[in-house]
Design a protein around this nucleic acid. Sequence first.
DNA 1: CACCAGGCCGTGC
DNA 2: GCACGGCATGGT
Length: 246
Amino acid sequence: MEELREILTGGQSFSWTDEGDCFSATLNEKVYRVRSAEDFEDDSFLHEYFDLDYDYDKARREIAAKDDVLAGAVNAFPTLRILRQDPWIALISFILSQNNNIKRITGLYGKLCRAYGHEVEKGYWSFPTPQELSRTSMAELRELKVGFRDSYIMDAIDKADILTEIPALDYHDAESRLMSIRGIGKKVANCVLLFGFHRMDAFPIDVWIRKILDRYYPGKGVEYFDPYRALCQQYLFSYARFLDLE
DNA sequence: CACCAGGCCGTGC
DNA sequence: GCACGGCATGGT
């Protein structure tokens, strides 16, 4: 359980629920229940989702050798990974994330599933496809309490086809293409690139990353973290929250 | 009452 | 180009 908590509920995915004795999520038209890394080694979807083919031990060693802050971050979160999430789910998830907190983002994500997804198992609803979500309206989204993000979600539904273009684009073109969707700025675009497309050249800068960069890496550009900038970003995000930086 | 949360938009300069 | 206020909602 604990080796998965930061990965599944720490702010990169909002699909997972802490059931007490396991984490559950409705993905890939199934309900997955996991307690530890052993639970997904023989499942092809989870194998891919948890990025099991990547050599995290090697990356962690090289990241920890870079400086004391990164060493502390790697040490504090020895099992952290970057999940390979569905691009559409990542897009809507991180639209919901802006000026919001993880608990409420997860709640809104669940409301969208119940309102527009389909029931895969008794009490477990899938995240709505673009077609399913297109049944909504500004008024209905407001009733679900998404707030000012209503028009952003509506525009994302209209422009969902953009997601099919992203894999062929380089970092800057992919980022600006995503930013052509209303409500997608630099930060959300980078979250979609990182968590939805597993682009390891992405580097989302949110309030926590801003704090830890200002404090420990003043004057340094993100190139400092290469060739593991995306992974460093995720370690630093968890570490900044863990330290509760001011 | 204030301020914050994995920000972005519109406006003014 | 950059600074700033507004924005829905719920928690502290």
